[in-house]
Computed example of a mutant assay.
Amino acid sequence: MTDNNLTLVLHGKMDLRLEEKPVLEPGNGEVQLSMRQVGICGSDVNIWVHGEHGGYIVDSPLALGHEGSAVIRKLGPGVTTLKVGDRVAVEPATPCRMCAFCKGGRYNLCPHVKGLAMPGCDGHLTRTFVMAADFCHKVPDNVSDGEAAMAEPMAVSVQATNRGGVKMGDTILICGAGPIGLLCMLTSKARGVHAVCITDIDERRLAFARELGADHTINVRGKSPQDVAAEVEELLGDKPNVTLECSGAQPSITTAVYATRSGGVVVLVGMGATTNEIPTAEASFRELDIRGTFRYVNCFQPALKLMSSGLVNVKPLMTHEFRLEDALQAFETARKGEGIKILINCHKETQGR
C-alpha cells in the first residue's frame, strides 16, 4: 500500500490542482478507504466551471468527487460490520443521526448533513479517504469497481422513482437523456413500467437512449412545451402517469407539467437555476402532484441489487476512464459533453472498469 495521497483540489473557477494531502486515520466508527473508481457528476463540472452549484458556493479549496467505490484499508475503533479488504460503494454524506428527520427515516433531509464535495467537506477524488463506516455499502462480487461507483447516480434514480411512485404498468415521461435520465429510464424499466418516452435536445443521447431500451424519444429542440406534450401523448397513446424531470431546464419543467396526466406526478430531479417558473394554474386545475427529490435515503442497497441481479445494466453508460493523474483531461472531456459517464481511477495499482 502507498501513502501517496494524491488529491484533486478545486481552488476557484476553472482552477483544479493535483496536490499531496495527508493520509488521515479513521476515528471511532470510521474506516480508511483506498479509493478505486470515482465518477464525474454534472454538479462537479458546474462547481469547477462556475464555482457554485444549486446555491452552494465554493469559497475555499475543496476536493471534488462524490460517486466513489473503494476498498477498506483500515478500521477505526468500534467498526464491526466491515473488514479490511471489503469492496464498498460510498454513500457520500453523513447526517447527524439525531434530528427528527434522521430519526424519522428521512436522513437525506437532515439540516446538519455533511455532503462530500460540498463546501467544508472534501470529496472522493483522492488516493485515500476516511468515511463513516455505516455509509460504506458492501459490493456484490459480480459488481465491478466501476459499477460500484455508479451506485451513487443509481441511488438518485431509485429515490426519484420512489418519489414518483413508479409502478408496474405505468407510462413514464423522462425529460433529459443525461446519465440521471438514462438511469431513471433503466430503473423504471426494472420496475415493470409499460412504456417510457424520453426527451432531449441532443440527438446522440436520444439515439443512445433508444439503444438502452427507450420506447419513444423526442428531440425537443425548437419546440414549445405544449407541442412536446401533444407529441408525448400521441406516442404513448395517453398522457404519462409520472414525469421525471431530469434536466433542470425551464422549458423542460413547463413541458413536464403540460404533459403529465391529470392526477399524475411530476418529480423535479434535475437541478438547474435556483428559481424556475411553473404553470401553476395548469398544475392546480388538473391536480398534479409536483414533488422534489433530494439525493437518496436507503437507496444504495437497492441500487447495488439492481445491478447485481442484471435488472439494470450500467456498463454501457461507463464510456470513459482516466487515471487520477489525468483528472484535468477527464473534467475537460465531461465539460465538452463527450461520452456519458466518465470515471477516474484513483488507485494507481489497478486498471479497468
Rank of each mutant, 00 (worst) to 15 (best):
L206W: 02
L10W: 01
N28F: 14
S60G: 03
V79R: 09
T80C: 05
G264V: 14
T171I: 06
D141I: 05
V242M: 07
E287C: 14
N108R: 00
T260F: 11
S309C: 07
P240Y: 00
T243I: 11
G237D: 02
A93F: 14
D141V: 13
I218N: 13
R221T: 13
V265S: 14
G337R: 07
K167S: 15
S247W: 01
Q226K: 15
P92H: 03
D145M: 14
C121P: 00
Q32N: 02
F208T: 13
C99R: 04
R221A: 15
N46P: 00
L186M: 15
L62D: 01
K74S: 03
F322G: 04
C246V: 10
V38S: 07
H53L: 00
G12E: 12
R17G: 13
S247P: 02
C175M: 06
M1E: 10
E234G: 01
R261K: 15
M118V: 09
C99S: 05
A259Q: 09
V143Q: 07
D86M: 02
G178H: 08
G65N: 01
P119T: 07
A133Y: 01
G213A: 07
M131K: 09
M271F: 10
G270N: 08
H347S: 11
D141Q: 13
R261C: 08
M154S: 15
V143M: 03
G292I: 10
F135E: 12
Y296I: 05
L18V: 11
V257G: 07
D289N: 15
A133Q: 03
M307R: 10
G169A: 13
L6C: 04
A330E: 06
P279L: 15
P179A: 15
V265C: 14
A327G: 10
R210F: 01
G104A: 08
G292F: 10
H112W: 05
L8W: 01
G115E: 01
C102H: 05
G54K: 05
D202S: 12
R205F: 07
H53I: 05
E338A: 14
F129V: 04
E321I: 15
K305G: 09
M168D: 11
A100Y: 04
A327H: 02
I253R: 01
L306H: 11
H11F: 13
T260H: 09
T255C: 10
G165S: 12
K83F: 03
W48S: 05
E203V: 14
G39T: 10
D200L: 13
E19V: 13
Y258D: 04
V71E: 14
T2D: 09
I290S: 05
T319F: 12
N46W: 02
K13S: 03
S309R: 06
F331L: 05
G178P: 06
I290L: 12
E277G: 04
G339M: 12
L212T: 08
A256Y: 04
P240V: 02
S284G: 12
N46K: 10
T161H: 12
N4I: 12
V257H: 06
M307H: 10
C121I: 06
P251T: 01
G104E: 12
M131Q: 15
L328T: 09
C246H: 04
V143K: 08
A281G: 11
D44H: 10
M154Y: 11
G248A: 11
N345S: 09
V143N: 09
F101E: 14
F129T: 03
D215A: 13
L343Q: 13
H11N: 14
